[in-house]
């Protein structure tokens, strides 16, 4: 019945989380979605690797860099350095956090609708 949203990994304190609107906006672009899909597999990737992997295959470094910046700004992607090379990895916190919030509100509605049902069916 009552379900506490599982896990707490997405609920980080501090300023790293941004508005949900920005997370959705960041995902509302085919190229960025493709970049996220690629990074979701877990391994941090360099810009050259990401340039090759885009759906169109014709993305320039500049374009990939620009899209990564947008994802970085909302906290979905972070830059890690391996020696002199910059690599990018996926950070699931903002997406997780949104999902957990929806689960929370959803559980509240289950309770409320359960009470409504008891109320009208009695």
């Amino acid at each position: 019945m009552l379900q506490r949203p599982s896990g707490g990994a997405g609920r980080r304190r501090g300023g790293s989380l941004r508005d949900g609107a920005q997370v959705f906006a960041a995902l509302g672009d085919e190229t960025r979605l493709a970049l996220v899909a690629k990074l979701c597999r877990g391994e941090p990737l360099s810009i050259s690797e990401l340039t090759q992997s885009t759906a169109s295959g014709r993305m320039t470094r500049q374009a990939v860099t620009k899209h990564l910046r947008v994802l970085e700004r909302v906290g979905m992607v972070r830059c890690v350095r391996a020696g002199r090379e910059r690599r990018f990895e996926f950070n699931p916190a903002p997406v997780e956090e949104m999902r957990e919030y929806l689960e929370f509100v959803s559980a509240k509605w289950d309770e409320a609708l359960g009470r409504l049902q008891a109320f009208v069916e009695e």
Binding site: L2, R4, P5, R11, R13, L17, R18, D19, G20, A21, V23, F24, P94, E97, M98, E100, Y101, L102, F104, V105, W109, E111, L113, L116
Partner: peptide, 30 residues
């Protein structure tokens, strides 16, 4: 009865956190 709630993309992150934090104390009561 179909219930929909929409527009969560506009809810600020801070508010979402608050709902959770308060809920921690609230579940036992619920």
């Amino acid at each position: 009865l179909t219930l929909t709630e929409s527009g969560f993309d506009k809810v600020p992150a801070a508010r979402r956190e608050e709902a959770f934090l308060r809920n921690d104390g609230g579940w036992a009561q619920q």
